[in-house]
Design a protein around this nucleic acid. Structure first.
Lengths: 193, 193
DNA sequence: CGCTCCTTGTCTCATTTGAGACAGATCTTC
DNA sequence: GAAGATCTGTCTCAAATGAGACAAGGAGCG
């Protein structure tokens, strides 16, 4: 259902369905959509939809998974993998996929995505979190799940705000601001326990 | 090959091919394109291309024909069909299909389109030409093919200029200027013979 | 409750398509 | 001009899709 499929027809059908879904989320919101509507917009039969995806959630989940894949790749570039630079890459990725994230995280999306997004960012923060405030390594107890969660919430909130405002400043700057805020959280919580 | 086809797969294939062609004309110019390239961009097999079109010229011809159809419909709206207003509709249509006309008429297009476009506009001018300069009806000998041709050239040239400049002013104004110029031609040639 | 309307998920069969091979044309490059 | 590559246009067969029907399950409404 989601393994790498190299058949051209299958890839095309899935691409058309993905594009149709994003369009329709923008127009009417995810919750209001029916499978038939998505298929019609994609110029694909409803039967073909069900041959490719279990339901509309499976479709959006694939979209999401691919975006996360791309996000990881953007963030894990060798040269930047171990510097605060990764958060600039992070927001550059968001900007590149703006349409997708606006649709999924915005008003017409669903709280569901926000939760999934946050979960993904939590993983990122856990892996790269020590790099957030330059020089603040190991400042929070590694076993503590609360701090990464908090920082991830901050980042997701920042994304939606940033996109809603029409990206008032460049990735570099929003990344810096987020890092400063995250740094403050790190410093505060590092004195706990 | 171009009769109304209501099969969803056929319509989808043709739509994908049309979109791919426009994209590729923008990127590399019409002449440089191969059928295989167009098919690949469209995510359609080369075999499917040939099942739907004789060659790339047939494809672009269909695109062109559909645009002309839309142009005629835009121009022939009942309420405006018999007033100089049609030339405003004309440029509004151009603006709506800007991407298409830029691709076809611009540098990356082909002189071929310019000729086809001019031919279509000649027909328009012949049908509605008397409306160009308000009150200048019947000012040129109807059998004279030269004047409509000249005016059509003027209009096509105006289109490419207008689009290349990024549409410096609204359809209303470019239409007015063209009508004034056409009017001058009409007046001049009306004294001939 | 009962009724209607819509959506879902699944199925079958006809049809369009994709993959790939092919000969011949055309373009490149030496 | 010869050789190698690329493109064209056509073909075959397997595979994915489209049309349409179907039962089941809500959702809205009187």
């Amino acid at each position: 259902m989601s393994q790498p499929e190299n058949n051209l027809r299958v890839r095309r059908t899935q691409r058309l369905l993905r594009e149709a879904l994003i369009e329709l989320i923008e127009e009417r919101g995810f919750d209001a959509l029916t499978v038939g509507e998505i298929a019609e917009r994609a110029m694909v039969s409803r039967a073909a939809f069900y041959r490719n995806y279990q339901d509309k959630y499976a479709l959006v989940e694939q979209i999401f998974a691919e975006a996360m894949q791309a996000l990881l790749e953007a963030v894990a570039e060798p040269r930047t993998a171990h510097s605060p630079e990764i958060w600039v890459r992070f927001f550059e990725h968001i900007a590149e996929y703006e349409r997708l994230y606006r649709a999924l995280l915005g008003r017409r999306g669903s709280p569901w995505f926000v939760l999934k997004m946050r979960a993904s960012v939590v993983d990122l923060v856990k892996e790269f979190g020590r790099l957030v405030p330059p020089g603040a390594a190991h400042m929070y107890p590694k076993s503590d799940e609360f701090v990464p969660d908090l920082v991830a919430t901050l980042f997701v909130e920042a994304i939606t705000w940033w996109l809603d405002q029409g990206r008032p400043y460049p990735p570099q700057e929003i990344a810096n601001r987020c890092m400063l805020l995250a740094g403050a959280i790190f410093k505060e919580t590092s004195t706990w326990q």
